[in-house]
């Protein structure tokens, strides 16, 4: 058998009931080549400190709950392997730009509110009665929004976005991708209602086109694209609203 390898994992710890501020702790973790960073955290919890707190569920990059800053980069810890960092130390911290609830768990309530605010459901373009049957969509029409349905709400894009870091009211990449998913759906007629948010001071113009959100997205949703397409849409709405009887935001 080959010799047991160890990796140093530095964890940003924070217990809200006793700690003034977050601090780092270093653990020496034995690992095998098939171990993810999430499994490293689990090893620490099982063997060193049972109070270590983090979110996880699927362990296969689909539930979106295990995001953390790994050596400063927002990543899903379940699909990031310890072997890729060895022999260097791995630093794991709670996702940037969010308030820390405990250790690696962040408070997502602001994000959840944003998801709700984009009206993430189909607002029918024209109401159909049951006996008119289902809405028909061609494969090409499905392709128009397909990419934006892949979001798993992991919020890595928010941890990547410098503008969200500066202004937490910014609607942000993930919620905009979801908004765009519904706007692009041929069955939906809600774009005008959603424009109020898109064109508002919390809307797309906070973005300075850094593009890091799309780079860190584990599902290739390309939220930066959704944001920037909607800058054009909002600018059109801004200048053309005087020509149409119904405007967007006040």
């Amino acid at each position: 058998m080959s010799e047991q390898k160890f990796i140093e994992i530095e964890v940003l710890r924070y217990k809200p009931e006793s700690d003034e501020a977050p601090h780092s702790e270093v653990y020496k973790v034995p690992f095998t080549d098939d171990m993810s960073v999430l499994q490293g955290a689990q090893y620490i919890k099982d063997n060193f400190d049972g109070s270590l707190t983090y979110r996880w569920s699927c362990r296969m990059a689909i539930c979106g709950s295990c995001g953390m800053m790994i050596n400063g980069v927002p990543k899903l810890s379940c699909e990031t392997f310890i072997r890729d960092y060895y022999p260097n130390r791995i630093t794991i911290e709670a996702l940037a730009h969010f308030p820390i609830e405990k250790d690696l768990v962040v408070d997502l309530s602001g994000f959840i509110e944003k998801l709700e605010s984009v009206q993430p459901y189909i607002i029918p373009a024209e109401k159909r009665s049951l006996d008119q049957g289902e809405y028909i969509q061609t494969p090409a029409q499905v392709q128009d929004y397909m990419q934006f349905t892949s979001c798993i709400n992991c919020t890595l894009c928010y941890a990547a976005c410098p503008q969200f870091g500066l202004n937490p009211d910014f609607i942000g990449p993930g919620a905009m991708a979801l908004l765009h998913r519904y706007n692009m759906d041929s069955r939906d007629g809600g774009a005008e209602q959603r424009m109020e948010l898109v064109a508002s001071e919390e809307g797309v113009f906070n973005c300075s086109a850094v593009g890091y959100c799309s780079e860190v997205c584990p599902k290739h949703v390309d939220p930066a694209n959704a944001v920037n397409i909607n800058k054009t849409n909002a600018a059109k709405d801004y200048f053309l609203r005087f020509l149409s009887p119904k405007g967007g935001a006040k």
Binding site: A199, S200, E201, G203, F205, F239, A249
Partner: peptide, 14 residues
């Protein structure tokens, strides 16, 4: 909640 429309499109356009 009512939101304020951003006047960014003018500057963004230029």
């Amino acid at each position: 909640k009512t939101r304020k429309r951003s006047n960014a499109p003018i500057f963004w356009g230029l």
